[in-house]
Design a protein around this nucleic acid. Sequence first.
DNA 1: CCCCCATATTCAACTTGTTGACTATGTGCT
DNA 2: AGCACATAGTCAACAAGTTGAATATGGGGG
Lengths: 200, 200
Amino acid sequence: MSLRHAVMAALLEGEASGYDLAKGFDASVANFWMATPQQLYRELDRMQAEGLVRARVVQQERRPNKRLFSLTEAGRGVLRDFTAAPPRPGAIRDELMVKVQSVDAGDAEAVRAAIEERMAWAQAKIARFERLRARMLDGRSEEEYLARAERVGPYLTLTRGLFFERENHRWGAWALAVLDRRSAAAGTPEEAPGPARVRP
Amino acid sequence: MSLRHAVMAALLEGEASGYDLAKGFDASVANFWMATPQQLYRELDRMQAEGLVRARVVQQERRPNKRLFSLTEAGRGVLRDFTAAPPRPGAIRDELMVKVQSVDAGDAEAVRAAIEERMAWAQAKIARFERLRARMLDGRSEEEYLARAERVGPYLTLTRGLFFERENHRWGAWALAVLDRRSAAAGTPEEAPGPARVRP
DNA sequence: CCCCCATATTCAACTTGTTGACTATGTGCT
DNA sequence: AGCACATAGTCAACAAGTTGAATATGGGGG
C-alpha cells in the first residue's frame, strides 16, 4: 500500500489538490509511480481520515471549489518511517516486453511499430526531463546545485528517469536493428529483398 | 489483464507446470512481469477454461502429481492478436524511488542502504543475465546467433534486462556519490568530518 | 530424530487498481 | 449557438494483485 507514500512524497513539494496530483503526478512522482485520479481521491480521503494529510477547502469564484491537501506532522512521521524501512523489490510490468518476447510467434511488424512508439515517447520524456532539469539548476552547475539545494531527492529521481529513458531509447534502436537484419536475411517473399522494410 | 499474455509468452518455451512458472518466471519473463504463485495458478485455471492452454497431468512417484500446461492453437492466436494490438503505456512502480524522492525529509542513511542493496541485486542480475546469454549464444557470436536462431524475442528482452540493470547500477553509484558529497559538506555534527560515512 | 527446504497445489480473505459514467461551471473556437 | 476542453471532483462495479495459511510428501543436514 505505498501509493500513499508516493502521494506524501509529492506533497513534500507543497499543497496540492487531488486534481493537481492527478496531473502533476505526471511531472514529478509519476516517473516511478503512476495512479489514476480515482485512486488519488480515494487515497487522499483515507489519508485524511487517518490524519496523514489535512485538507483546506479553497472557495473559488468561477471554478468548482477545491480541497488543498498538505502533509501533517503525523504524515511526515509516516514518511520518515517509510524511508527507514527496508524496501521490497519493485514490481515491474511492461507490456511491450511481453510483446517483444513473443515477437517470433506474433506480428513482427506491429511489434516493430510498438518499439518505435516507445522510442518516440522516451524521446519526449527525455526532452521534458531536460527542461525540468534546466529549471531546477536555474543557471547553476550541477555540483553547485547539489551542494546547496535544500532538497536533492527530486533531482536524483529525475536523473534516474533521464538515465532510464535514454537507455530505453538506445535499446529500442538496437532491437529495431536486430529485427531489420533478421527480416532482411529471412528473405521475406512478400516484400522486396534488398532495401526491404525501410520506412519513410 | 495481460498476466495471461505474459504466461503465454513463457509457454512459448515449452510445457510448464504452475510451479515451474512460479519459479521460472524469475529466469525469463520475470524481468518484465512478476506474479505470485497464486496468481499464476488462478490464471492458468481460467485460461484452461477458456481453451487458451491445455493441461496434461503427469503422475509422479515420489512427488505430488503435476499439471503441465502448454499453449493451444487458440492460445497462440490470442498471443498473436496481442502482439498486433497497440500497447498501452506501462505502469512503473518503484518503491525505492519514492524513498529517494523523500530522502531530504527522511532517513538518509536508510535510503543510502536501500540504494546499496538495489545495486547489489542489480549486480547479481547482471551476472545471471550474462550466464544466460552465454548459454543462449553457446559459442556463436551475437551476430551469428541473431541471424540463425529460430527465436530472437527472448534474446531481445534479456538484453533489455541487462541494459536496465547496468543503468540501475550506474545510477546507484552516482546517487550514492551525491549523497556522500552532501553529508560531507553539511558537516554532520554527530559524525566526524573528513573521512565521514566511509563504510567498510 | 527433527526441522527445514523443495516440490506442487489449493483456499479464503483482503487490499489495490481500473473503467466508465455523472455532476458542475467557465473559457475559447468556430 | 454549439462544441470541445480544462477545472474539480464523486460514485459504483469489477478486475487484478497480495497475504497467509493449509495439504501432502520426500530428501538432506545437523
